[in-house]
Amino acid sequence: MRRLEGRTAIVTGSGQGIGEAIAMAMAEEGAGVVVAELREETADAVRRKIEEGGGTALAHATDVSQEPSVDAMVQACLERFGKVDILVNNAGIYPTSTVADMDEDEWERVIGTNLFGTFLCSRAVTPHMLQQQGGRIISITSGRGLQGADNGAHYASSKGGIIGFTKSLARELAPAGVAVNCICPGVSDTAQPRGHRTEEELYASAARIPLGRIGQPADMARAAVFLASDRAKFVTGQTLVVNGGAIMQ
């Protein structure tokens, strides 16, 4: 039995990595998926992959940090699918620098994409979820949001902010039966950590993870499907850590 049959899911940043895995997994579970991704070609490539697997998808070039772009994306979702049941706020960037050397522009870009983007997308889907008295919002945070980062205070701030935002929105939307949660990955086998780690460093980090391996996008996708499914309807305001035990909470 497919667990998301008939649902509509928006997954931001789903052109690659964790977002792509979540989009593919949700489509496999029967959801119609909006592949909301900055680059049109990457969005379209994932859409094709989903359709080739027998799923339903809409590609939409979306800049989550821009209100008109987000509104257009949600509008396109409604036109195609008539509703939105699930939002996955996954789009994010992680440039590195110390606070001492941090550019104001870079600060704005990181907070603007990761945190403000999560706000904009959540705000855009909320009226529709309130109207149908149900829905799920799942945002991807990070272990850096819990423990800080020595090379990316903007990234850590944005991810910590997502947790505070999630708990608040969970309280606000709980009476309407809308559940709002975070997934907290650790080091993952995606392009993002490769921006600031060598391959050796990336795989060496596995030695510090109790389960002995870095995370795979599919690990996060399974958690996202769970949180989006009927089996997690009473889970809200929570941060589900999917990190092989790297941080336990």
Binding site: A170, R171, A174, P210, L211, R213, G215, Q216, D219, R222, A223, V225, F226, A232, F234, V235, T236, G237, Q238, L240, V241, V242, N243, G244, G245, M248, Q249
Partner: peptide, 17 residues
């Protein structure tokens, strides 16, 4: 189950917020 294959040492709160 296998759905949480990469989850250990975690606490899942199922409490309606």
């Amino acid at each position: 189950g296998d759905e949480s294959d990469y989850v250990t040492g975690a606490t899942l709160h199922v409490n309606g917020g």
